[in-house]
Write a protein that binds this DNA or RNA. Structure first.
Length: 506
RNA sequence: GGCCCCAUCGUCUAGUGGCCUAGGACGCCGCCCUCUCAAGGCGGUAACACGGGUUCAAAUCCCGUUGGGGCUACCA
């Protein structure tokens, strides 16, 4: 039998990391079994659902690389795939349950039920629908409905153990009397989650229901529905919740949680998926955690998924993403980085081939240090936006300058640099050895001041890589020209003189 | 309140009664490399929530306690 799984989000907001992990586990399971992955939109909550969210949701999912075989946009044999387009199916099945007296009309008002609930809560009883309308004779109920009385349809729950096997949690059960008579059809004719879900899963021939842990208690109700409708139970697998770093439920205050935010920050979809897969599951081979979606689907094992909730860890996500970024290689990363640099106004909207080639060198110099593509901005700021005033005001830079001989190195470096027409890498190296000879400084005491002279910072990419970038960059047609070596040293020295003049005792 | 679920290093996890003086990964710390910060390499720190059982033997099985999560909707 073909494995059929589904991801069934509600279009009530952005796609969330928790949802994406659920989608991923479904996808992984489908792919490793040559199965079908269905995307179903659960939009029966009319007040919260928006078609705008449906679009965003699919966009996020497409970006992630999880592709679906059936769904609202791609169609399929078991459509429609949007629940609001399936209301007739729910009504049909509801009619069946009604005629078999497995369900009944309930005429209690929302207010009355709320009152009942409060009263039960107040006396310490479990709040459940009393079943008041259960005993209204079906004929009388039908007549009342025909007369236009507002009514919902409720399921008759039963006594006795309700149980099912869960691939992740094992055998799960609850006493039937714990389950109240839940609503199958609302007064407006739409179906709430539990009923719509079961009808759809049956009709869409879903073999494995893989969803969030929060649905375990819904599953008991759904088992009742499968029984009443006379359908065979699918396999169930429930996934634990993703928690924030502090162990509470993941939310906005833990940082980004919606997928579009991760995309904007420059996380690679494959890396996000890789990390999410690791949240609740471990690859069989220890120490081999960086995996592509294809490798994941080959090694993934649903029955080995962890039951306990997992905390979302940014440090590890960053590491996973960095690893994927390195795998990607410089040319592709350059393409990804361009939009971020354009946003800063550093790169023209349509960079020339010459600029792109130079950019390749820029990316080459920094790409090992990027956790996410977005980081390219702060890593390359010293190239595109040279600001000695700001740089020299940094206490750490000032401390480096206060080292014995530091200023002398900069002056000497400045003088030597001025003597050369072109400053390619070889010339630069020659200049450095001259400075070394004249000042007697070496190692850190030599290079630290030179770094400050060139970047007004004490840390950054290798100077040897930076020199050609500065020199070649100055000839490029960029929105703001790249300051070449001479200009940089001159500017730093000017600021330095101002700075020294203002230092009492100097 | 009731019901259900969960509990191994700071975090993600391996572990399915002896292979566990508990393994790996991220982080952290140290060393090496090095012009800097990183990156990279090497090494180190660090956990079976607690209390009872069962057993020759328990991280692994059972019970309880504590702590977390979920459900208890005409939300999903």
């Amino acid at each position: 039998m073909t494995v059929r799984v589904r991801f069934a989000p509600s279009p009530t907001g952005h796609l969330h990391v928790g949802n994406l992990r659920t989608a991923l586990y479904n996808w992984l399971f489908a792919r490793q079994n040559q199965g079908i992955f269905v995307l179903r939109i659960e939009d029966t909550d009319l007040t919260r659902s928006h078609s705008r969210f449906e679009e965003e949701l699919m966009e996020d999912l497409r970006w992630s690389g999880l592709d679906w075989d059936e769904g609202v946009d791609v169609g399929g044999e078991h459509g429609p795939y949007r629940q609001t387009n399936r209301l007739n199916l729910y009504q049909e099945h509801c009619k069946q349950l009604l005629s078999e007296e497995k369900a009944y009309h309930c005429f209690c008002s929302v207010e009355a039920i709320e009152q009942e609930r409060q009263a039960q809560l107040a006396t310490g009883q479990p709040p459940r629908y009393s079943g008041k309308c259960r005993d209204i004779p079906p004929q009388e109920a039908s007549q009342r409905v025909r007369d236009g009385k507002a009514a919902v349809v409720r399921m008759k729950s039963r006594q006795g153990i309700v149980t099912f096997q869960d691939i992740v949690f094992g055998s799960l059960e609850v006493e039937g009397s714990e389950i109240g008579d839940f609503v199958l059809l609302r007064s407006d004719g739409t179906a709430p989650y539990n009923f719509a879900c079961v009808v759809d899963d049956v009709l869409m021939k879903i073999t494995h229901v893989i969803r969030g842990e929060g649905h375990i208690s819904n599953t008991y109700r759904q088992v009742l529905l499968y029984e009443a409708l006379g359908f065979q139970l699918p396999h169930f697998a429930h996934l634990s919740t993703i928690l924030g770093r502090d162990g509470t439920k993941l939310s906005k205050r833990h940082g980004a949680t919606s997928i579009d935010e991760f995309r904007r920050q420059g996380f690679l979809p494959g890396a996000l998926l890789n990390y999410l897969a690791l949240l609740g599951w471990a690859p069989p081979q220890e120490g081999r955690e960086i995996l592509t979606p294809e490798q994941l689907s080959a090694e993934f094992d649903l029955s080995r998924v962890n039951r306990s909730p997992a905390a979302f860890d940014w440090d590890k996500l960053n590491w996973v993403n960095r690893s994927h970024l390195k795998e990607l290689g410089q040319p592709l990363l350059t393409e990804l980085a361009i939009p971020y640099l354009q946003d800063c106004g550093w790169i023209p909207p349509e960079p020339s081939a010459e600029i792109k080639e130079w950019l390749g060198d820029v990316i080459q110099a920094v790409f090992k240090y990027l956790d996410k593509v977005e980081d390219v901005v702060q890593e390359t700021e010293l190239i595109f936006s040279f600001d000695p005033g700001k740089g020299l005001s940094d206490p750490a830079v000032q401390e480096a300058l206060s080292e014995n001989g530091a200023v002398e190195v900069i002056r000497e470096f400045h003088d030597r640099v001025q003597r050369h027409q072109i400053l390619d890498l070889e010339t630069y190296k020659g200049v450095v050895s001259e400075v070394k000879e004249r000042t007697g400084q070496k190692g850190k005491n030599l290079f630290h001041p030179i770094r400050v002279a060139l970047t007004a910072r004490i840390s950054g990419p290798e100077l040897n890589q930076l020199i050609p970038i500065f020199e070649e960059g100055q000839h490029l047609d960029l929105p703001a020209p790249i300051t070449p070596v001479k200009g940089r040293v001159q500017a730093v020295l000017d600021h330095l003189h101002d700075y020294l003049r203002n230092q009492p005792g100097n």
